[in-house]
Design a protein around this nucleic acid. Structure first.
Lengths: 343, 343
DNA sequence: TTGAAAGCGCTAACAC
DNA sequence: GTGTTAGCGCTTTCAA
């Protein structure tokens, strides 16, 4: 007496389908994978049996035997900040047709956690890995390098990729924003950001920003950091603090759009003249901004496109150089005053 | 001549670690899994060799041999609407210490896609599945039932679960909100929602809402649906449409907080007296609301708690009845006028 | 077009 | 404490 027929709760195997259809396991396997030539009648018998039993193939056994895993590991710092979901959309879009499946892991901006997530993912022998950022522990880098699969580091290109990189230059983005602000005539500029020692992209933007200020003989007149809580609310609070501490500040540069939006709402509440008395800018280009009473200046981080390009590299649809640089567009919105007529 | 030493790019196996350390494969396996007794010196030798080689275990082989997979499938409709990331946080929090790992799949509210995602996940033989909602195709339900693992359907409890369910009654939530609105004296009430035939939770809320209106001898004076785009912006647009079409409307009930927030910003822009002339309410209790100029009335969907409870069931930390009902709290915020003193 | 045998890399179960 | 043996459920390879 065989297990399967006597135990209705037994997990089905190819063997069960084989017995039910009177066809060898090998042929059943071929039918279910659409591989090799199988006669239409055999094919029908097999599909019928599989359907009737409710057979779900065991990918673990399949992967072990074929040494092929249709998984792509995606390692990102967070899901709750509006930027990575869109990257995921781009990745899914491209992977859709390829038979590859994204599997996400979240690190919460912690290098140790990232190392663990990468280790766990690699232990499933995925076909490729997409990892946010260029900064990783030595162990993480070593594991990825050794894995023998395509690795794409995304979001950032200011640094040395392990294999491929797709992203923007955050340093340049910061510089460009500073230049636009200066060109618009603002001079007393403050920075407001979330306190994230491991958010290297935000750090690089700030570095680029200060670099450009320095070149114009300026420096930040104030800076304020916060962490945790509702970004919109934090934006309000930080803005209140800065306006209070440095009343003559004339521009507020935020490390992301959410806190920038909070700041904007605060300034409007207070009846401040935006962008006349004070200008504001954020970063990311999140769609949220479209619903605000006034449109916050920002730079699009090319999230969708980064996801797409990264997935294309993994899927082998693109064979570019090691680095793919994208160029974010500055969207001045309604919170940077137009550049005055002459220079 | 063996493969490994001759090919530095070969993926390492237990055998390689075994040879490098002079210890049997079995003992190496024990060390790497912290299973069984191994002498400290052997242990050290093995760990040393594994580290030096950069060995990453092959979970595929391990899972096949042990018939154990430390994965929990999580199937949700979307990642971009602020509600599921928090559910994920709750799940991760609880799973953290158990050795189990969540793997998410996104369905975009499409039943066909859900079926495929479930099929793919089950083919990896996870230890449990967490699936959003109680409505699934017959095939999906059959697969889940047959899988022989704990299944937890989350978010909703208005219906029959396959195995376990953790969530709130959206029908009751809709009813409660309607009752609060009526008690506050509003009578000309409109509904504004996103057009999502497969968002069964939103549908049930609306049903409960209309039920309670009917009981009070009322019915909706207007309704408006939209889909796609920036929720905040859509909220503004829909609100404009409704206010224009039904000028004497005195309450706007939104299917979620984001469009409600858009509506609130619109009403404030227009200088409408909120909550005097017109009241508003949303649903979810997203933290975003904390940063708005006025706090939108809402009901907390218990997202974090749902994630936690679901994960506890999967992890075997809780063995409750089939349904775990949570009770959302109505938060009147600043957009429902206080109930008048008497009767 | 179909089937039989071997084995993917690991672990359970049992020796020693 | 450590090693040996026999698979896990599939696919590869080769034969018919």
């Amino acid at each position: 007496m065989t297990k399967p027929s006597s135990d209705p709760r037994h997990t089905l195997t190819l063997r069960d389908v084989s017995e039910a259809s009177g066809v060898s396991e090998m042929t059943v396997s071929r039918v279910l994978r659409n591989r090799g030539d199988v006669s239409p009648q055999t094919r029908e018998k097999v599909l019928e049996a599989a359907r009737a039993l409710g057979y779900v193939p065991n990918k673990i056994a399949g992967a072990l035997a074929s040494q092929r895993v249709n998984l792509v590991g995606v390692v990102i710092p967070s899901l709750s900040n509006m930027v990575f979901p869109e990257v995921m959309t781009g990745i899914s879009e491209v992977l859709e047709g390829t038979g590859l499946q994204p599997v996400v892991g979240v690190t919460n901006y912690l290098p140790d956690r990232e190392e663990k997530v990468i280790y766990e993912m690699l232990s499933w022998r995925p076909s490729g890995m997409i990892v946010a950022g260029l900064e990783h522990s030595d162990a993480s880098r070593a594991m990825l390098r050794r894995a023998g699969i395509p690795i794409v580091e995304i979001m950032d290109i200011d640094g040395d990729p392990i294999d491929h990189a797709v992203g923007i230059s955050h340093r340049r983005a910061g510089r460009q924003m500073a230049e636009a602000i200066i060109a618009a005539g603002y001079r007393r500029i403050a920075f407001l950001g979330t306190q994230m020692p491991n958010d290297h992209r935000a750090r690089k933007r700030l570095e680029g920003f200060e670099e450009a200020l320095a070149k114009a003989g300026l420096q930040l007149v104030d800076r304020e950091f916060y962490s945790g809580g509702s970004a919109l609310l934090k934006g309000r609070e930080m803005t209140a603090v800065v306006l209070n501490r440095t009343p003559d500040v004339d521009f507020l540069y935020y490390s992301n759009d959410m806190i920038g939006a909070g700041g904007l709402l605060y300034c409007l509440d207070k009846g401040l003249d935006v962008p006349g008395r004070i200008g504001l800018a954020g970063f990311n280009g999140v769609e949220l901004l479209d619903g605000l009473p006034r449109k916050l200046a920002t730079m699009d981080a090319c999230r969708l496109e980064i996801g797409r390009k990264a997935a294309e590299i993994i899927a082998g649809k693109a064979s570019p150089g090691a680095k793919v640089e994208l160029f974010p567009k500055l969207e001045p919105g309604d919170t940077i005053r137009p550049v005055s007529g002459q220079h």
